[in-house]
Design a protein around this nucleic acid. Structure first.
Ligand SMILES: [Mn+2]
Ligand SMILES: [Mn+2]
Ligand SMILES: [Zn+2]
Ligand SMILES: [Zn+2]
Lengths: 157, 157
DNA sequence: CTATTAGTGGAAATCATTTTCATTAACTTC
DNA sequence: GAAGTTAATGAAAATGATTTCCACTAATAG
């Protein structure tokens, strides 16, 4: 049930309405699942979480909605090398919980980290400015990912 | 023709031999194409460049070889959001030409940049160290990509 | 040179994502 | 609230990059 924790409509209604998008059951259900789940969900993961409560929402619409959400900047579409796209909310109601990723190239485990984020973000801000000017690019987003072997895969010989 | 610009065998022979991999025509041809091409080639791009000279090398082997090369760290496998993996040489004979990417979310154009790289790389080194220790991760690589609208797509209304 | 077996090509399979199209339901207007 | 407009949808089929299978080939060791 697309909850509003009884303090007015979910925080995303505004962003949606402004862009001429209709607010459908499916879209709400998907945002609801994303905002209540930890981790990096694939389209099918989301489908499986939405389906029990809203069996009428099809996988096709999950894909379509994720596409809209990522174009709206509400959701990040990520690639961790396991052959399917994964999604996470760009920011929660309390503002952004910005983080970057550590990806194991062996088992595909992903760790969110926020350590060092401040220095990184500060540098990124400058870099974005410089690059934006030099290449006339309107930068809206960045991805930083470190790849390597996680504790388990690294020690396992 | 897997060239050696007549100064001994191509620089990658050593890396290969050490790991128990056989040095085949196909593998040489692929490395040769990668080292002589600018840009970010897909498996099929590479196939098309290899095919005229070595019609016996199949697409399947291109995929297999790219996989080996990226596990060896000779090649980076990249995702720019256009539905196929793209590859670039990790470093040329003259050492690393390290760079990061600016990706247009509208037309998928990609710009390599090296500006600001020094500061970024310095910060990344520290971050890698900190993260490696805290999460017991053996970090071997990183990806930094900025997303936004390129000059053409940004101005086009 | 011969033996060993990693590597290969081609066809078929896989499977995440996209397309198609007839139907539904959000939002606007009265 | 009812009707009209049309964005959005579900189901099925199509797509297309990548992987799997397997009989065959050829790189390397001895
Ligand atoms: Mn994350
Ligand atoms: Mn590049
Ligand atoms: Zn791992
Ligand atoms: Zn563009």
């Amino acid at each position: 049930m697309p909850n509003t924790d009884r303090f007015g409509p979910p925080w995303w209604h505004g962003k949606f309405r402004g862009c001429g998008y209709r607010l459908t059951i499916g879209r709400e259900a998907i945002l609801d699942v994303l905002s209540k789940s930890e981790g990096h969900l694939s389209a099918e993961d989301i489908y499986m979480k939405v389906h029990p409560r809203y069996p009428s929402v099809g996988l096709t619409s999950i894909y379509r909605t994720l596409d809209v959400l990522s174009h709206l900047g509400l959701v990040y579409k990520l690639d961790f090398g396991d052959g399917r796209a994964r999604y996470e909310l760009a920011e929660g109601p309390k503002g952004s919980h910005h983080h970057h990723h550590l990806v194991c190239t062996d088992c595909n485990r992903v760790i969110d980290y926020t350590d060092f984020i401040d220095d990184e973000v500060e540098l990124l801000r400058q870099t974005e400015k410089g690059l934006g000017e030099k290449y006339k690019f309107k930068i809206t987003n960045h991805v930083i990912q470190f790849y390597g072997l996680c504790e388990r895969c690294g020690s396992r010989k």
